[in-house]
Design a binder for these strands. Sequence first.
DNA 1: ACCGCGATGTATCGGACCGATACATCGCAC
DNA 2: GTGCGATGTATCGGTCCGATACATCGCGGT
Lengths: 212, 212
Amino acid sequence: MLEFAILGLLQEAPMHGYELRKELTAKLGAIRAAISYGSLYPTLRRLQAAGWITEAAETPATAEEVPALTSRRGRVVYTITAEGKERFAQLIAQAGPETYDDTGFGVHFAFFARTDQATRLRILEGRRRKIEERREGLRDVLGRAAERLDAYTLELQRHGLDACEREVRWLEELIANERSGRAPTAPRPGTAGGRGDNDSPPTPGTSRTERP
Amino acid sequence: MLEFAILGLLQEAPMHGYELRKELTAKLGAIRAAISYGSLYPTLRRLQAAGWITEAAETPATAEEVPALTSRRGRVVYTITAEGKERFAQLIAQAGPETYDDTGFGVHFAFFARTDQATRLRILEGRRRKIEERREGLRDVLGRAAERLDAYTLELQRHGLDACEREVRWLEELIANERSGRAPTAPRPGTAGGRGDNDSPPTPGTSRTERP
DNA sequence: ACCGCGATGTATCGGACCGATACATCGCAC
DNA sequence: GTGCGATGTATCGGTCCGATACATCGCGGT
């Protein structure tokens, strides 16, 4: 998962670790907390060993002579390689079942702008199926095993069921939009500020601002 | 987390691993998938080493003579010890920041029936604070950094923001109920079947059916 | 002039948890 | 009689997290 996200982000620009974490947090803030350095740095090491990225110490040429004493451990900038881009594409293509769990789906969705429409559709439908299964499981528990569980546990299931139904509806909407070739965000009279435009529709060609 | 859940479940009845997993899945189905045996068995081993639980092979007395050849590896039944119950109470009491992340909160909530009201309130408020922070973070991104992100990422944030707002409202409701000493489930004209009662309100004494 | 303190920045270590895998028994349907 | 799904115990490699350590920079307070 982290591998995928890093590869995806580094395609936008080379970055050093700290920056990478910040961008990652901004992009994935909706689905998970902040990424830990205890995962980030080892993963970066791993990616480099595999040849997907290269790391370069940031030293601006001049004054290479006296690096001893207070060596000013410079920032390490990571850049994706051609093989790395290939790897990313490959990871997108083979969207298996692990792509449909909460984190996996979220991360893949965050990089939908780099995913072709067919794969997007496949992932959205896989996710929907998975959530529908979870929903059925919760309904079962709430229906059949309700008397075995205490009121708090039941309330938790109810809340979870609600979230499932909501997400299914959300996914339906996205799938419908996807099929009709539109950008994901239909202009809803929504929660936040009034501006309703979205820049750079991922599939150019059929992008019309929905206005009858 | 797993330690907490196991200790909580085993207080209801002794169980063997497979059963434990099933109960765990039923109880926590709303917040996480199924628990893995790769976590379950090592954790059980750890709990036993610490003395919180005891394991006993299931062999019904008679025919102890010929266990060799097709030894019929019996089920191993785990029972919580007095120290285990103490440990569970201690884990409830020290509800730290890790209690407020998604999984941690969910697991603790699932065992609210074994938690005193003051702690319940503390956990609910801690969780609310945490979700409010996440919500503010998402609003920031959607407000300030919107033009830096593609339409899909924005849609993801929007969905996450929605979930946050919804959860905060849910928590508010629970907190209000908790403060007034009621059971968690107010009789809502809800989704599933019509029965609106809940058995065994966790704090007896002030339990009144809400009817002005 | 000095100090603290928060942001920036890189890094490791132990531990929790997962997914895949292996192996064995039981009951039932075909 | 045989395959097959549910029941049941268990390990292994690997991913990721939380705590911790350490170092620099700039800014505001005193």
